[in-house]
């Protein structure tokens, strides 16, 4: 089983990101489960969502405490929330950022990939300039960096789960898939 935890802020589309990811793996024949950490959602507040992927029936019906991989929609969360708690060694961290990551402490124990999902979302008019909706871009980046799921499946999942601007969201997914950068240790 693969367990993925998504960190973001209310309004960025973190919960939908966890669902798009589940839908994409479902389209590749996997069993899937996606759900938010249940709270009272507010715009701007830290949000956590979970995705489980398996070859057979998923029986665990509780939150994920030891994820295999992380998806981080807001890089500032790295400084404010202990995002790596429970993360398995060598797990992927896919981060939405435009700041250099070569010196990041995260590289010690984890594989890190970055994508400027804000710039991509703004380019395709997703959300506003101040609060771009980056979920479709970050999932494209996840597929590009990890190779765990195909771009084709992610695109189909985006088309299924995004309520509006489907074409722009697909373009953002594709661009992030191509432009995601795997950070090498110095």
């Amino acid at each position: 089983m693969i367990e993925i935890r998504t960190h973001g802020r209310g309004g960025q589309g973190s919960v939908i990101a966890s669902e798009i990811l589940a839908e994409a793996f479902f389209r590749e024949g996997k069993f899937v489960q996606a759900f938010p950490a249940f709270g009272v959602e507010r715009r701007g507040a830290p949000v956590v969502a979970f995705t489980r992927i398996a070859d057979g029936e998923i029986r665990e019906r509780c939150q994920i405490y030891e994820p295999d991989h992380l998806i981080v929609l807001d890089p500032i969360l790295i400084d404010t929330v202990n995002i790596t708690v429970g993360l398995k060694k060598n797990g992927w961290i896919i981060i939405n950022t435009n700041r250099p990551m070569e010196d990041s402490e995260l590289l010690k124990d984890y594989r890190v990939a970055m994508v400027d999902a804000n710039a991509i979302a703004i380019k395709y008019g997703l959300g506003s300039r101040a609060t771009p909706i980056v979920n479709t871009a970050i999932i494209g980046a996840f597929a590009g960096a990890t190779g765990l799921v195909s771009l084709e499946a992610v695109v189909k999942a985006v088309e299924e789960f995004v309520p509006m601007k489907k074409k722009d969201n697909v373009k953002a997914t594709e661009e992030a898939f191509k432009s995601v950068e795997i950070i090498e240790k110095k």
Binding site: F31, V32, Q33, A34, F35, P36, F38, I58, C62
Partner: peptide, 12 residues
């Protein structure tokens, strides 16, 4: 059905 653990959980 359980709130959230079923109500808000996506599955096939």
């Amino acid at each position: 059905l359980d709130a959230f653990f079923l109500s808000h959980t996506f599955e096939i």
